[in-house]
Design a protein around this nucleic acid. Sequence first.
DNA 1: AATCTTCACTTACAGATGTACGTGTTTAGT
DNA 2: ACTAAACACGTACATCTGTAAGTGAAGATT
Lengths: 130, 130
Amino acid sequence: MVERPALSKGEVEVARVLWEIGPATVRAIHDAVSRSRKINFATVQTYLRRLQTKGYAASKLDGRARVYSSRAKAQTVIRDTVNDLVERLFAGESMPLIRHLVEDRGIDESDLKELRGLIDRLESEQGKTP
Amino acid sequence: MVERPALSKGEVEVARVLWEIGPATVRAIHDAVSRSRKINFATVQTYLRRLQTKGYAASKLDGRARVYSSRAKAQTVIRDTVNDLVERLFAGESMPLIRHLVEDRGIDESDLKELRGLIDRLESEQGKTP
DNA sequence: AATCTTCACTTACAGATGTACGTGTTTAGT
DNA sequence: ACTAAACACGTACATCTGTAAGTGAAGATT
């Protein structure tokens, strides 16, 4: 139940990469982030340092390279971040966001299929755990 | 196609209230925001001023009271904000977010029903507009 | 009229954020 | 050994954010 300061947008981006490619060097993380947008090496380094300061990451030296690893579960960060967004942008209701994602942002056929399966499962569970 | 600076969390909150209760005085907006959390009157005033500076709101004096109104469609702000979040937290994929909302955050029976209807509609449309 | 209350508006400010330069150090190539 | 490339790390800094106190004028109350 560690209380951690919220993450900024840039930090979230780097944190995500950290879960994705697991413990990794600054270089590897920079390379990964660079794939989606141009970003300075030192900037990534700063984000990682801040991530560590805030308690979301840990690091150790492996030879000359510093290897960062995540200390926070992706799910926790996702939950907190999404909760905050839903609270502020949708007054706490998630349905409008779901609607937006499905209708406005669009969803492809296979995702639609998966979503249907998800609903089927939830609906069959409904009533069992009231 | 106005290019506007992104909104901060606090600004988003006030912007939402602005769409909700339409053109309104600072006091009315403050009252509304106060319903969800304790916030200083002057703080709301500052957010509104910044919203106007960034081009998201307009204001005019009605007697002694300043009335603010939105200049940006809710949908635009929602789109931009959600796009940014999905980009950073989910590498651009919306399905993981939908999954999170439906599974982890939970969804009640009536929303589940609505969602099913939504999918049905989308599925029947699939193929018609490729 | 004197006082209290209500606003608008200005100004403030510490801390967070995004972004990056510079400096020293280690390793690899000549 | 000498130089070039690769890094870690500290430092910097303009903005942006969140939050609010102070000031003065207009309207309400006694």
